[in-house]
Design a protein around this nucleic acid. Structure first.
Lengths: 200, 200, 200, 200
DNA sequence: GATGAATGAGCGTTCATTCAT
DNA sequence: AATGAATGAACGCTCATTCAT
């Protein structure tokens, strides 16, 4: 009947999660009603509970799927033994690629992770934040030590600025627009690495 | 009788709004209950309605008070006839000062303005965004024309990066910390203007 | 394939009803979900509807099967032309035997019959209660007339006490325990007929 | 305005609990909807939550108020140093008085305590059952030792029968009927102590 | 100015039931 | 016979809001 049989259930589930992620990203998790997700997905609110335990478990699945993929990418970069500048470039590029593929999940992460991480179920969000911070700070510090980066800037401030700028892009980035993720990464890196004033 | 009793209605109102802004910023507007605000302010939920029409009108008052003050500052800067670089420096510094003084309002603005601006009551948020964009884009474009800024960067992308990075700082900035708003602005501007790699 | 598969439809149906009765007895009819019955029976909730019209019809079938058997036994006793004391003894013994064989059904009857009998479908429960009451009251009154029972006790109160005590035993009686139903009946009858203080 | 001012809130709460207890007793806790309680009490479902945390907390309050009073009465009896027969008489009389005063609570206790006591919040129901059993069993055993009660009956069985008969009376007893609680206790005790057959 | 009690709409969730496969 | 997915009504509960006092 259906050309893509075999894992209909899996695909249905994935489609529902994608719908949920979009609504969560657009309106915020708390402000999103389960009826609204169901409307957008074309079924009744109660029917979602055939596929998921709860609204919260949908959120959990969205965030952990995104973070799993994110860390897979980051892990490869960090294990590659690149220099500080190249590491930063690769991490930023990876990040924009994740925004391209998991835009809604990134937006949700950005908006909700702070207060969610207080709940045991979402404790992994706090872990992620820490691992994240570690990877970036160490790379920046190594860069300063190796004179790849300026020594007169506060590394923690730079980290915060860079971290936020990357993720907050999820709030305006739309896949299929004029800029590819790689192009955005390139522009962003050029700005942060070289500055927006001309180097004479 | 309680900690935030002022000696007249205006002060009482302002104190209540400050309390509301803090809770909105900490938990999000939708997730904040009117009862929680009342608890923090030391009265009962129903009593807030003597002072305000609705929860929404508290939000409205918080955001417009902040934007009024913000535009007063920006207006002075834009009217001062500075060069592009100096204008950018002044706008960024102004912004960090606003974060210092109106932290909660900025955080609320950052988090909620996108979906609020769809409602007629909050249409002014969309206007603000536009005015904001205009001021920045024009300054950046003028800078490119005058060779104060690099011509090879996409001006709209630079605008988005800078705008977001500045405002999102409200989510981690705490007044009275190790860095003054001016110092944060200086570091940020140094990064964006000069880049984080050393200029030989 | 699963533990309670019979070799024909009748047995399957009976096995499903037995499972349902156990769950109804353990958790109460209302608190029992059709899914729970299905789980215990090793199929999915929807599949039960191939065998039964509704959850209510399962209950109906359980209760009427039990009452049919109960009245068969009672009928034999009442038709036997025994004296009042012997009739009471036989009825009580019959009752404990029913508890032994239809424990879950008796527990359900005890717990739910009062409010169920308001529904037309379960009106027969009220009839049963009446027939029951009639048989007992008549036997007790005959016993008083024939001086087999004391005349100074309120016959209706005695009836209520005895009826309740017998049926409520279904809530603690477990088949295969230390006491056979006949032994429990003997002890119970001894208490009610002779009293727990010694006869000098 | 109201003749019984001063503790209106307390009385309102008590009246609501009494209404809830009646509905719980009539239909069972699980089958009772919070809307039904509210209907019977003349307000809307949501309004109940101004007075109580949850449906469960209403149940909790009903049961613990009843048990507190019950144990106060039992404590007095058990501390009075009466003989076994007199102790049993006093306990039974106390029990029927409790049924008279807390009829719905007793019916709820009888119907729900078994499965409720599995929840931590209602663990005290299991404690009560144990204390109860202890008081009765010890009194019966003492009675057997002192030859006040027959030695040929199984004490545990007698306990179960007596316990059940007393409490199950809550399902048919209505305050203000033809029999006072004391009269019912007298008849019941006469039956159990002396037996229903005449002592020659 | 503030309280206490209520409203009513809507929320996340459950569950008996249906039905195409 | 049984499954998987859905329905739709109802449930316990929350919360912005109202209003007599």
């Amino acid at each position: 009947m259906n050309a893509i049989t075999g894992n209909d259930g899996v695909e249905r589930r994935a489609a529902l999660l994608a719908t949920a992620a979009e609504v969560f990203a657009a309106r915020g998790y708390n402000a999103t009603t389960v009826r609204r997700i169901a409307d957008d997905a074309g079924l009744l609110a109660g029917s979602l509970y055939y596929h998921f335990d709860s609204k919260e478990s949908m959120l959990d699945e969205i965030l952990s799927a995104f973070l799993d993929e994110l860390w897979a990418g980051y892990g490869t970069v960090l294990a590659a033994g690149l220099g500080p500048r190249e590491t930063i470039e690769a991490l930023v590029t990876q990040s924009f690629r994740q925004i391209d593929r998991h835009g809604p999940a990134v937006a949700i992460y950005q908006r909700e992770s702070r207060h969610l991480s207080a709940q045991p179920r979402f404790a992994y969000l706090a872990d992620t934040r820490l691992k994240f911070e570690n990877a970036w700070l160490r790379t920046l510090e190594r860069g300063v030590a190796e004179r790849a980066f300026r020594a007169d800037l506060d590394v923690r401030l730079v980290y915060r600025f860079v971290r936020d700028t990357v993720w907050v892009a999820a709030s305006w980035y739309r896949p299929g627009g004029v800029h590819s993720p790689e192009e955005i990464a390139r522009q962003y890196l050029s700005m942060v690495l070289e500055g927006i004033t001309p180097r004479t």
